[in-house]
Nucleic acid binder design. Structure first.
Lengths: 326, 326
DNA sequence: TTGTAAGCGTTATCAA
DNA sequence: TTGATAACGCTTACAA
């Protein structure tokens, strides 16, 4: 059994209150220096550790925030989530919060998940989910403090990237390099940002008199896709991919097939997520400041917990990263 | 103010006990079906969420475990930690635990960190730290349940990879391909496993009459290192790197310099961490089942919490992954 | 079948 | 300058 405050009080021959004041460093109370030091000494001897649970129960606050992702089992190998975690952690570290990863929520009913998320272990949540996620609706209904990231949530303050501007930058870049026939490989996931990206580039290229074909990222392996592409009559000269991971798969498959990139085929991505790791080729991509966005989401969540009102949408600028694949 | 159990009891016109039994699904108590359903209905109407904090305080247990890394700021951008997180998460998910990431512990005194780690928010810890870490000593002193991963901790049950066998496999592989002069690029970090790896390969190659030079991974950039290597008289034919990240940096630098890999220079890594992400080249490496090890660490921690006694060392087998860089 | 009441380890109010 | 004591929300003997 762990040492309690009362054990210290008894051993030190003081009251619970005095012990509490000393342990919390409550300088306003005028406890005799002698008593103070004695209590500290006893606490150290007994290896005292304040019980954060009891404290939280009493003060009705908890310095822990959580992350909910609406994609079931979320792999932490996903570089996007790595950025999100890193950003949240940075803020938590600065502001003396801990960070709880909710994992026991796979394949459950929305309300059951909401109960797990909203059981007092965390003060609030950063949310990464599709708009229309049922758990998010439950959270909003029960007024759980939460802030959404990466994709807009109608019911929550949301932090999103400027997808349209990113696509505009890519379109400009490709157009200026002479590409008039572009294929856009989009994601299967139903996110508002997915729609925004494909619509934007299709529109921009069409407006200028070029052609932009939107295709789902091929289910077949990228090599087969590119082999087909190679023999087709009327092939696009540039591949614009929903994200960097798709783009890298295409780069790799292209190199394996002996294609010259970007001369035979230009490839661009979106996200800026893989740049630190990858050898051999530097992808042309749009860098989205995911880590900063996540950090800002965490900060905003903490402000929300303090009763502030937040803007419903906060949009972050994105920047083109030059490389050698387009 | 959130709905409490007592609010439900009052609104439903039952006692606290009855409400508690219903909410906990305590089937042994013979509550009238009618009462039961009524309580559930009221709870739903009021958006009741059990307070896990109060519950934990009462039952003196908490279904949360944590991770302590002795390397300060820990980022999921580190693929190793991504594996560790993923493994811990998997087990937590299966066994209805949550996973708390302590982040407010940077740059603090060991005892202060221990207080943060051991404040009742988590039942136990998975530890990733160098042997001799002062916080680990504190944790052991205060009998905080903990299990170490990746590097041996004298004071804790430890799960480690079979580094010696991994190096043996790499040595065999390189030797069988005709390499007689090998450079081993080791890490600056003082881990037992670092020592184990460099010593093992140096010994194995020497025993067979070859030469193995152990060097710290160059502080200069990998390109400069390889440029020097290229003009040296008596140059090794293979580079064996402490981990995959080092190896990939060398592969990239080599390709940039126009080296043929593996013909001009063979490069091998260790860890098996980057294989899912990287295009262009498949590294020859040793796959360590980090995720499984982390999962097992979490499982063992939970067994420890149940009062079981654990083996002091558990060693996991590693396997060679063939590729095209050696 | 349901209710009463003690207690988990803190903090905070008030009194001494 | 210190000490009693009542909460915080829940669980669980034990009583009714």
């Amino acid at each position: 059994m762990a040492t309690r405050l009362i054990d210290i009080a008894e051993k030190a021959g003081v009251s619970l209150t005095t012990a509490s004041h000393v342990m919390r460093g409550y300088t306003k109370s005028k406890i005799k220096r002698e008593t103070w030091d004695h209590v500290l000494k006893v606490a150290d001897e007994l290896g005292y550790r304040p019980n954060a649970i009891a404290r939280s129960l009493k003060i009705q606050r908890i310095n822990t925030i959580g992350l909910y992702t609406g994609y079931g089992y979320h792999s932490l190998r996903d570089p996007f989530l790595a950025e999100v975690y890193t950003g949240i952690q940075r803020v938590c570290s600065d502001l003396h919060y801990d960070f709880l990863v909710h994992v026991d929520i796979e394949g459950k009913e929305p309300n059951e998940i909401r109960l797990r998320l909203n059981d007092g272990k965390v003060a609030g949540l950063v949310v990464y989910a599709q708009s229309g996620d049922a758990v998010v609706a439950e959270l909003a209904r029960t007024r759980m403090p939460a802030v959404a990231i990466a994709d807009r949530q109608e019911l929550l303050p949301s932090l999103i990237a400027d997808d349209a501007d990113g696509m505009r930058q890519l379109a400009d870049y490709l157009w200026s390099r002479g590409h008039r026939d572009i294929a856009y490989l989009t994601s299967h996931v139903k996110l508002a940002s997915v729609e925004a990206r494909s619509e934007t580039i299709a529109r921009l290229i069409a407006e200028r008199g070029g052609r932009c074909t939107v295709l789902p990222f091929p289910q077949m392996n990228p090599g087969e896709f590119l082999a087909q592409w190679r023999v087709s009559e009327d092939r696009p000269t540039a591949l614009c991919c929903w994200n960097d991971y798709y783009a890298y798969q295409m780069v790799r498959a292209g190199l394996d097939l002996g294609l010259r990139i970007p001369d035979d085929l230009a490839i661009v991505g979106f996200d800026g997520l893989l740049d630190t790791l990858l050898p051999a080729r530097n992808l042309v991509t749009i860098r989205v400041p995911w880590e900063d966005m996540a950090a800002e989401a965490a900060k905003m969540l903490l402000r929300l917990l303090d009763g502030e009102t937040l803007p419903s949408i906060t949009t972050f600028p994105v920047t083109l990263v030059a490389g050698d694949t387009a």
